[in-house]
């Protein structure tokens, strides 16, 4: 699995933390043509979600204009120690996921 996740290892309760998540993906738009003018079928990640302690805290719909290896950064409030889980859903239904721990004091 090819993901790069940046979550602070520790945070103070109530602190705003920045989360950055990148996944390796070609994000093929479906508008390009390959050899001999044959269209290259669309293959993108169309949905990204981030959950904390089983509850969804951030989600994004992605479209063909998004570049390859989509990189998303967002903030959340550190409420307690736990695990962030990240899920990327592909057009063909496959999902990739990753997790990162945070310790809140």
């Amino acid at each position: 699995m090819r993901t790069l996740i940046n979550v602070p290892k520790t945070a103070k309760k109530g602190e705003i933390v920045e989360i950055r998540a990148m996944v390796a993906h070609p994000m093929e738009t479906g508008y390009r043509t390959g050899e001999n003018g044959v269209p290259i079928p669309r293959q993108i990640i169309h949905r990204f979600t981030c959950s904390f302690a089983g509850r969804e805290i951030f989600a994004a719909d992605l479209f063909p204009a998004m570049s390859a290896n989509p990189f998303l950064a967002f903030t959340t409030v550190a409420t307690g120690s736990g695990t962030f889980t990240f899920t990327w859903t592909d057009d063909d239904g496959t999902t990739q996921s990753a997790a990162a721990e945070i310790t809140v004091t």
């Binding site: 090819r2 940046n6 990148m22 390796a24």
Partner: peptide, 14 residues
């Protein structure tokens, strides 16, 4: 500069 936002790192890790 940031290895966690540099997509070239995917190839390095591969």
């Amino acid at each position: 500069d940031d290895d966690l936002s540099n997509p070239g790192m995917f190839w390095v890790l591969d």
